[in-house]
């Protein structure tokens, strides 16, 4: 790994793994459901960065990495909308969105 390089592959990979770890940490430790969703977004973003890095530096002719990243973005949008709809439903039923308090299936 070089600090100043034209091909910062390792640097990008380390950055994305750091963000991935922050995302996992957020998912594990947060109580608020919306915050957990933010952690998921962090994880998805770091994965996207990996895909695009490999698409740029390894996959010489194709754009498969970019395609996967596009699909990930679309899926993230779909997932966010459904998750937020669920969170709003939970809020309507329970009056709170802290996941550790939500222990019953019905109110």
């Amino acid at each position: 790994m070089l600090w100043f390089t034209k091909y910062p592959v390792e640097n990008l990979l380390i950055l994305s793994s750091a963000v991935f770890c922050f995302g996992i940490y957020t998912i594990v430790t947060r109580k608020n459901a919306v915050s957990i969703l933010m952690g998921v977004e962090l994880v998805l973003n770091s994965v996207n960065l990996n895909f695009i890095t490999f698409s740029q530096f390894v996959d010489n002719a194709g754009i498969s990495g970019n395609m996967v990243a596009i699909f990930v973005i679309v899926l993230a949008a779909a997932e966010a909308s459904v998750a937020l709809a669920i969170i709003l439903g939970i809020y309507q039923n329970f009056g709170r969105v802290d996941v550790d308090k939500l222990t019953s299936l019905r109110n």
């Binding site: 977004e41 996207n48 890095t53 990243a69 596009i70 973005i73 993230a76």
Partner: peptide, 14 residues
């Protein structure tokens, strides 16, 4: 990383 479309899509969607 020269993924210009992804650049726009990231800002637009995310």
């Amino acid at each position: 990383l020269r993924a210009d479309f992804l650049f726009a899509a990231q800002i637009l969607v995310y």
